[in-house]
Amino acid sequence: MRAAPRVVVLAGGVGGGRFVLGMREALRRRDAAVNTEQLTVVVNTGDDLWLSGVRLQPDVDSVMYALAGVNDVNRGWGRQGESERVASELREWGATWPWFTLGDLDLGAHLARTGWLRDGLTVTEVVARLASRWALGASLLPMTDAEVDTVVEVDTGTGRREMHFQEWWTRYRATLRPLAFRNPGMESAGLPSGVAEAIAAADVVVVAPSNPVVSIGPILAVPGMREAIASSHAAVVGVSPIIGGKVVRGMGDVCLDAIGVATSAAAVAEHYRSRRHGGVLDCWILAEEDAHLASAVESAGIAAVVHPLWMTDVTATAAIAEVALRSAGR
């Protein structure tokens, strides 16, 4: 492997943004001149939605803002120095979800995105335009150019109902029991320009510690994605989003329970499966708190590596990313 290998990260959400920051730092420590050809982030777009007439891409924006250094680390989403005057006015008009806040700076990105989409640009082209505003040190690619917004079927207590993932996640805080997650239109979606090429050219593919069901799940569900990973010469290394039997952030345990997967580092590794057995993983990095599960991971045909996984700052996260790069050699 070169001093600065070519890396593709599959990521979504705030955790994905944090991990990508650490990966960029790890690559820069190997080669200060690392460029966007050496780090590609394939981002989940299952969270996308139309709201108040504009197209939102929460995971794309979370990763982009994190790499640009303009994300609000205190709230965990959106831009620094945000205001909410437009959101307040939209609520007065009854033209938005009252429980879903659009920051004014963030809304500027949504308006630009929507205008370019209506002009006929693909999602890939729009993401590239948005990302070109900052020197991100990485290339961002959506998992697909198709609209495959995540729909959740829930048990309301009096019956079943379908709703957009963002309503279930943000309004109800995942308190309504999910029965199924679906991405309508996924069967006719496909890989956008650049994704298969990046995976084919990669030395390492990393599955970030993002939600396995609603962040990584949609990425792997895009027709052609698993085939691209299976045929790549790159080692595929996953980083556990579970530490000590608990999710690090959000309500990922509720999502895992809905698909019959235990909230366990070993169970998530087995859910992704070994690449030798038709899955996607060659190696799995577990937290020190889960070291006792390493043998179960190895029994599933996946190399296990134990390392501290708390992403407390860029330094700690870069150390995790470096372990992922070194583990690829296994």
Rank of each mutant, 00 (worst) to 15 (best):
C283G: 01
D104S: 13
R171G: 08
I259F: 05
T315W: 01
A258T: 13
R79P: 03
D145H: 07
L117A: 12
R273G: 08
A318F: 07
S193Q: 05
E84W: 11
A112T: 15
A208Q: 10
L220E: 07
W168A: 14
R28L: 08
F100Y: 12
E289K: 06
G16I: 13
V43L: 07
A146K: 04
A300R: 06
I243M: 12
A262H: 13
V254I: 15
G250R: 05
P142R: 02
L179K: 09
R18Q: 14
R182E: 14
R326N: 03
D149Q: 11
G185H: 06
S295T: 08
G103R: 06
G76E: 10
V151I: 15
L67C: 01
W310D: 13
S210K: 10
L281T: 10
L256C: 13
R29V: 00
C255W: 12
L105F: 09
R173L: 05
P223W: 04
G69K: 01
L111N: 11
A174Q: 11
A287G: 14
D59S: 01
A234G: 04
L136Y: 09
F181G: 10
M64N: 14
E197Y: 00
L90P: 05
I320K: 08
V280I: 15
F181K: 05
F165C: 04
K246Q: 15
L56S: 11
M251G: 01
I320L: 07
W310H: 10
T170E: 14
A235Q: 02
G252E: 13
L191Q: 00
R161E: 15
H233T: 08
W99K: 08
T175M: 09
V127G: 06
R85G: 00
V86D: 04
L49V: 07
L21R: 15
A198K: 00
R173W: 04
D155L: 09
W310V: 14
D290R: 08
Q38N: 11
R226N: 09
L49T: 09
T150S: 15
G157H: 06
P223G: 07
G217L: 09
P223R: 04
T170F: 05
S188D: 04
A319L: 02
D253Q: 14
W284T: 02
V41L: 03
A4V: 09
A304I: 00
P98C: 12
S210H: 04
E289M: 00
V70C: 10
A235C: 08
G53Q: 13
G53D: 14
F19L: 12
A95I: 02
A266Q: 13
R326T: 03
L10E: 03
R226Q: 10
Y172C: 07
D48L: 05
V152N: 14
A3M: 02
N71R: 15
V205I: 11
A321L: 00
L281C: 06
